[in-house]
Design a binder for these strands. Structure first.
Length: 112
DNA sequence: CACGTGACATACC
DNA sequence: GGGTATGCCACGT
């Protein structure tokens, strides 16, 4: 894995994303204390436990980052739809799910 | 050391 | 809207 501490941060941060909502790689990186390292998030998600909220992570433009047609992409789409998230052509309208994270709460919880 | 690549982001055309 | 260009960072070649 990339980094034990980072993985833990990612998992914890994801636990703050409510069901039926989504988050971008960039914002996730920011909340993990790793601004500008959105690409690293993808690496982590590949090695993180399957029972975390990995399916709520989308690209900034709302598209599912996984290769369209892949099993993983289908699974992510199904999971999102199951939560009530509308997915059109492998993409969601980020404006409808503007998750306004409580930064302070997260920072305290993660003890930054 | 120099590139190329990637579950990315932003700016610009 | 799509396409290109940069910036970004970890990894492999």
């Amino acid at each position: 894995m990339i980094n034990e501490a980072v993985q833990l941060r990612v998992e914890k941060t994801l636990s703050f994303v409510p069901e039926g909502n989504v988050i971008s790689y960039g914002l996730l990186a920011d909340l993990c204390g790793l601004p500008g390292r959105a690409r690293m998030m993808g690496k982590c998600l590949q090695e993180i436990e399957t029972d975390c909220n990995w399916h709520r992570v989308l690209r900034a433009d709302g598209k599912i980052a996984l290769p369209s047609g892949s099993d993983k992409a289908r699974e992510q789409r199904e999971r999102l739809i199951a939560e009530g998230v509308e997915v059109k052509r492998s993409r969601v309208n980020m404006k409808n799910f503007g998750w306004t994270p409580d930064i302070h709460t997260i920072l305290v919880a993660l003890e930054y």
